[in-house]
């Protein structure tokens, strides 16, 4: 098992071994830590390890993007939401809400891992044509040059589509995170406010579309639907 690894140079082997240990330790930290903040920090550990392995495989641009986008933006967003929602809520990891779920989950992922490795061993790991979309070292250019050329020529349409996707995601996030028009109480039950909404005294609490529904008389259905969408 260690024979192919010994064929590599010592720095490469050390880099891979340490990065693999960091990645797996971080992943274990994510799935076992009780505090969500600790899970997020373990996630940063895993992301750094993956970035090191990207560099090890001559994907230096992706390593930089991995650090900037994942560790710099996504995890900070996670931490922001964790702090926003309250950090003192610790999950009791020891209790098991569904009996027998964890052994089943472990069994399932063990079967999946064994299946993937068995398939890889029996099928030579990587088969197929080489350098279909362009070589990684075309003309001895740098990684950024080759990657940029591929993105802006072969994959230009997909690149433009991701721009649209990002705009849609930003709009969706703003719509989802927007507070309701005037202070509706947080943490209210979904079925709660239907009765107060029809008496007309709290008509200004509704979003746009609420008051006409109230005037129309059939307020419960439309008002509740609008309420559910805005809240």
């Amino acid at each position: 098992m260690s024979a192919p690894m010994l064929a590599a140079t010592v720095p490469d082997s050390l880099t891979f071994a340490i990065s693999a240990a960091v990645i797996l330790a971080g992943a274990l930290g994510v799935i076992t830590s009780r505090n969500a903040v600790h899970a997020a920090l373990s996630l940063v550990m895993t992301l750094f390890g993956v970035a090191v392995l990207f560099i090890e495989q001559q994907a230096s641009f992706l390593a930089a993007v991995q650090i900037i986008v994942y560790a710099g933006a996504i995890v900070v967003l996670f931490l922001f939401v964790i702090m926003f929602l309250g950090v003192d809520r610790r999950e009791n990891v020891a209790e098991e809400p569904l009996r027998g779920q964890r052994p089943l989950a472990v069994l399932l992922v063990a079967v999946a891992m064994g299946g993937v490795i068995a398939l890889g061993v029996s099928a030579h790991w990587a088969t197929g044509a080489h350098a279909v979309a362009g070589s990684t070292t075309a003309g001895h250019h740098s990684n950024v040059y080759v990657l940029g050329k591929a993105v802006f020529t072969t994959y230009l349409f997909a690149f433009e589509a991701t721009a649209a996707l990002l705009v849609i995601a930003v709009v969706g996030a703003v719509v989802l995170a927007k507070r309701p028009r005037s202070g509706e109480s947080r943490g209210e039950e979904p079925a709660g406010p239907e009765e107060p909404a029809v008496d007309g005294s709290s008509a200004d609490d509704e979003g746009p579309g609420g008051p006409p529904a109230l005037v129309g008389g059939g307020a419960s259905v439309t008002g509740a639907a609008d309420h559910g969408g805005a809240g």
Binding site: Q57, Q58, A59, F61, L62, V65, Q66, V69, Y70, A73, I74, L77, F78, V81, W125, A126, G128, A129, H130, A131, V132, A133, G134, S135, T136, T137, A138, N143, V146, L147, A150, V151, T154, Y155, A158, F159, T162, L165, L166, I168, A169, V170, G172, A173, V174, V175, L176, A177
Partner: peptide, 29 residues
């Protein structure tokens, strides 16, 4: 991408990063 000498794998990773960012933004919202 390294085993096959193909830059397409790295381009896909680039797009996966974008999709992951969008997914996290909407999911956290």
């Amino acid at each position: 991408s390294r085993m096959l000498g193909d830059i397409g794998g790295q381009v896909v990773v680039f797009f996966v990063l974008v999709v992951a960012a969008a997914e996290v933004v909407v999911g956290l919202g």
